[in-house]
Simulated assay, not measured.
Amino acid sequence: MLNTPGIPSVIRKRAQTPPHLRPDATTTARGPGAQDPEDLKTQQQEQKKKMETIYHAGDILEAAKVLDLNILRDTALLWIAEDFWLSPLPDDWEEAVTDEDHAYYVNAKTGVTQWEHPLEQYYKGLIHMKKGCQEEVDRAKMANPPSEGEVREMGDYFGVDLDAEPHCRHLLEEAVCMPLPPGWRDDEQSGNFVNDRKGITTTNHPLDPYFVESIRRMRVSVLRRTQPKKATSVEQAEAVSALLAARAEGKPPIEVLGLHPSANRAEARRRFRYLSLLVHPDKNASAGAADAFKVLADAYKAL
């Protein structure tokens, strides 16, 4: 949550206003009604193509559950669950695992420990936007455009200098026009936002985490285009080289991850998460990072 004391008056003003599972192996035995081998091959290729962006059904479905996505009604939004699973943790955050293989998160800088993934609220906000809120915000902007003063007040709230960061303006305008999500209300007496059904009270707008992370990602995107690439660490460079070499040597997926063939699924999962933090293009500026991450993801998918 933001450490800014109080809520800008502009927020008060506006706030009131399938599961993709791997197919079973299909028999190729000939007989009455049996599929032609060429048709079968084509069908398998099509199925593989449809699934090439799904790295492991169990992980994606687990991520969807965390984000409160309904895998039957929200099939079109499962890409958000996939992105959530693959996204590297923010700076200073690390993933740890209990003896029962439950993940939790530690901020190495502040010492904070929590069960909730640091980006969970951002992705829940993204889902909210994709489920119709974006259109609602766009209509509000057209009907009642935010004033310059409102946008700058929102910039102060989120720590954005509009003169230096004009690329963040559209996000601040959206924040000005953002209504409260369903189930939330602005309690004027206490000055807090309240969700009675969930029993939650907060001093910040419930969609603040979405805008905080959106602004951070916008800054990263601009820096990537305008600033010289930062040097990668020795560990990052070695991870990229190892993954690219594994692909060139044709190693089996489990060895691409640097694990012994006897490694179990939990070990593979932890290794994948560790390597993804080293080679993900958002964390690694080297030329081969994108290719290395694809090698890593393809290997994990193939397990």
Rank of each mutant, 00 (worst) to 15 (best):
169 R>Y: 00
171 L>M: 07
11 I>L: 10
124 K>E: 02
211 F>L: 01
185 R>V: 04
110 T>Q: 05
268 A>V: 06
113 T>P: 00
118 P>M: 06
43 Q>L: 14
11 I>A: 03
199 G>K: 04
154 M>F: 03
189 Q>M: 02
44 Q>K: 15
93 W>C: 06
28 T>A: 15
165 E>P: 03
108 A>N: 12
71 I>V: 15
8 P>I: 04
106 V>Y: 13
93 W>I: 07
218 M>Q: 11
70 N>H: 14
199 G>M: 06
223 L>R: 10
141 K>F: 03
230 K>G: 08
230 K>W: 01
303 L>R: 10
34 A>N: 06
79 W>F: 15
135 E>G: 06
57 A>N: 10
165 E>F: 05
45 Q>P: 00
204 N>V: 08
198 K>T: 00
1 M>H: 13
64 A>V: 07
194 V>M: 04
89 L>M: 09
57 A>C: 13
225 R>Q: 11
297 A>D: 13
39 D>N: 08
75 T>L: 09
194 V>A: 05
188 E>Q: 08
250 G>T: 04
109 K>S: 09
26 T>G: 01
244 L>N: 07
138 D>K: 10
286 S>R: 03
91 D>C: 05
65 K>W: 13
26 T>M: 13
88 P>D: 08
52 E>I: 11
29 A>T: 09
69 L>V: 07
168 C>L: 12
289 A>R: 02
82 E>M: 14
60 I>A: 14
154 M>H: 01
24 D>C: 03
250 G>F: 07
148 E>N: 10
284 N>I: 05
151 V>W: 02
141 K>T: 02
41 K>H: 14
75 T>F: 11
224 R>C: 00
37 P>A: 09
58 G>K: 10
115 W>T: 07
270 R>L: 14
163 D>E: 14
208 D>Q: 03
109 K>E: 09
233 S>Y: 04
189 Q>C: 00
53 T>E: 15
40 L>W: 06
266 A>P: 00
175 A>G: 01
108 A>L: 15
122 Y>E: 08
7 I>N: 05
141 K>W: 02
223 L>D: 12
74 D>W: 05
279 V>Y: 05
129 M>R: 08
166 P>W: 05
3 N>E: 14
120 E>P: 00
240 V>Y: 01
225 R>D: 10
258 G>M: 05
100 E>P: 00
78 L>F: 07
146 P>M: 09
277 L>K: 08
234 V>C: 00
145 P>Y: 04
283 K>E: 10
228 P>W: 01
250 G>W: 07
112 V>G: 00
58 G>Q: 13
275 L>I: 09
22 R>Y: 11
85 W>L: 11
287 A>V: 12
105 Y>R: 02
222 V>I: 12
272 F>Y: 14
297 A>N: 12
238 E>C: 01
116 E>Q: 13
219 R>M: 03
194 V>W: 03
260 H>K: 13
296 L>D: 02
46 E>N: 12
274 Y>C: 02
157 Y>R: 02
113 T>F: 04
23 P>R: 09
